[in-house]
Design a binder for these strands. Structure first.
Lengths: 342, 342
DNA sequence: CTGTTAGCGCGTTCAG
DNA sequence: CTGAACGCGCTAACAG
């Protein structure tokens, strides 16, 4: 039988209450007694039953997700996953709320974080915007015992408890690798579309892409980066233009959102051979279909569902001061070809 | 406050015991009463607290993993993950045992499954070998209420409750895609090494690879498959030989184990340009290093840790008759380049 | 067929 | 500083 608090009490010759105080590091126990109890715990190999403890405490985790209200497909997917998690959370003594804030707006984000303090959640997951006021608000939350994980977009490691997202430098390098390999033996120009060079993720992807492609295939010429502001319309315009200007364009890398525009531009383009190699980010119904149709060659993806579930697991673990399984919480840079689609 | 069994009892005007009988579909309740209780449950939106129920039941899941004792790196990794899970399982009222059986031996596997009945586990996860006696033993287990999931290697869908592994046909197609793309504009011969054509996984991978590569790059010539029996030594011999015979070999696909032999043969080969494109399966310390060193170009992987954790989650969910999150339990075909290594 | 009662393992009063 | 007793939400005897 697994040892229980009763066994500890008996082994240490104290009462349950004392055992409990030691277990929960509460004051009111003499140093010597504490030592006796701790020895007993170690000796009989006690592991606390978290479920029972939570039942007794009537504990209920509360988690807030703070997400930009942008309408791009990825954020949509993220919100969908949060809603899903919300639905399931009833079974798991976890109450989840979703707060939307204007995108790329540090002040609004900071304000939203401040508002949370009205009813302080045990954990917060947010898509971070790197700005002093945001960092300060997060610090405040953490000082008050709220665990904080960044989602998708990170801050410096000291500023938060955990990051649920991918290494965008590595993602960019991966894109560069694929582009270089897919264009083996073929020289020419490669176009890159970013959302905005103001956001760190995009800068990282671009840097990784440039570095890796340069190493791997110096015969390719990367055109000046175009900013599509994650808008399908703008991306459409930019891609159409670059396709017109460079009829023999070798490759296109869209490292931001707005794939719908990219896809439209590609499909409106005449089917001149050889067509450019196209690499994009985020698997959505649109990008998936384009991949399947051969308009896009590879999609790099971060699994929104995984990110949300991971954030919740980590936040709960923090709240109970429990360990997490690192491998389980590492968000992969998924590479999808039309052959390994989920 | 979340409604509890007491609330149901009150709302339906019955006692707790009756509520419990209805909740757990136990006999001894008049149809009319049952109806009343079920209505009340729906009306007040009751969701059962699984943790509390398990506590009361003193429930303890028991799960048996039945794994081939082969010494290849992947099975090693699988066992390591099972041991890890075992260590954690104390916190989770789950008792895990690991049974090893001789590889590719249907009778031994069937016997091991039969032996489990001595102390029937609530769930069994096994690396399946497709054979009538195995299927029969699994059917027996399931009839006695034990849930069964296949791990890595599947059976027909009716034969088991769930499969925790990848679609090997798709994996083969993915390998074919990568090979075809990486060899754009380059003709020549491609060597394929399998473990054994007797195992379904390998047949599937081969078929997928052949199909896809044929579609994508008809200029490549796939050499007759060599069987390395998952043995590094044999693989070394085969690869060395094929490299000697075809100095300008375009590609090598190792769809089975024995990567160590492949890597040795590659590194002993003179550095003649252009070197063959090499694709292999399963990320291990060896294959990882070779990928990093540029000896291997891409590794397809199934995450052993994910498979083990997924099997456990699914088995537990089955035992409680709870739903699973499909997306979470789908095992990805991971594509690793040197750039997106974990 | 239905109800009463005593726990499961732990946390938390409130007396001593 | 320590202990006894009760309750979290649910299940399982045992009575009726």
């Amino acid at each position: 039988m697994k040892p229980t608090v009763h066994d500890i009490a008996q082994a240490a010759g104290v009462s349950l209450a004392t055992v409990d105080r030691v277990l929960n590091r509460r004051p009111g126990v003499r140093e010597a007694t504490r030592k006796r109890v701790e020895d007993a715990i170690r000796r009989i190999g006690f592991v606390r039953d978290v479920a029972a403890a939570n039942l007794a405490k009537g504990r209920t985790y509360s988690i807030a997700f703070v997400i930009p209200s942008g309408d791009n497909s990825f954020m949509h997917a993220l919100k969908r996953e949060i809603e899903e998690a919300k639905r399931r959370s009833a079974h798991e003594r976890t109450e989840i709320r979703l707060v939307e804030v204007p995108p790329f707006d540090a002040r609004a984000l900071a304000a939203a974080l401040r508002d949370l303090s009205a009813e302080p959640p045990s954990g917060v997951a947010l898509v971070a915007v790197e700005a002093p006021e945001v960092v300060a608000e997060i610090a405040r939350l953490r000082e008050n015992g709220t665990a904080v994980v960044t989602l998708v977009s990170d801050l410096s490691a000291e500023a938060r408890d955990h990051f649920a997202g991918v290494d965008n430098l590595a993602a960019g390098r991966t894109a560069g690798s694929l582009m270089g390999r897919f264009l083996t033996g073929r020289n020419g120009k490669v176009a890159v579309i970013a959302g905005s060079m103001m956001v760190g993720d995009h800068r990282d992807r671009l840097q990784g892409f440039r570095e890796r492609l340069g190493e791997l295939h110096p015969g390719l010429d990367i055109l000046p980066v175009m900013e599509g502001h994650d808008s399908p319309e703008e991306v459409f315009r930019l891609v159409s233009q670059v396709l017109a200007e460079h009829p023999s364009l070798a490759g296109i890398y869209n490292l931001g959102a707005g794939n719908r525009g990219l896809i439209r531009a590609l499909s409106e383009r005449g089917a001149s051979d050889p067509r450019p190699v196209v690499i994009a980010h985020e698997l959505t119904p649109h990008s998936r279909q384009a991949l399947d149709a051969g308009l896009i060659d590879a999609i790099l993806n971060q699994d929104a569902g995984h990110e949300v579930r991971s954030a919740i697991r980590v936040l709960r673990a923090r709240a109970d001061d429990l360990p997490v399984i690192d491998a389980q919480e590492r968000i992969r840079i998924d590479i999808f070809l039309k052959d390994n689609l989920p």
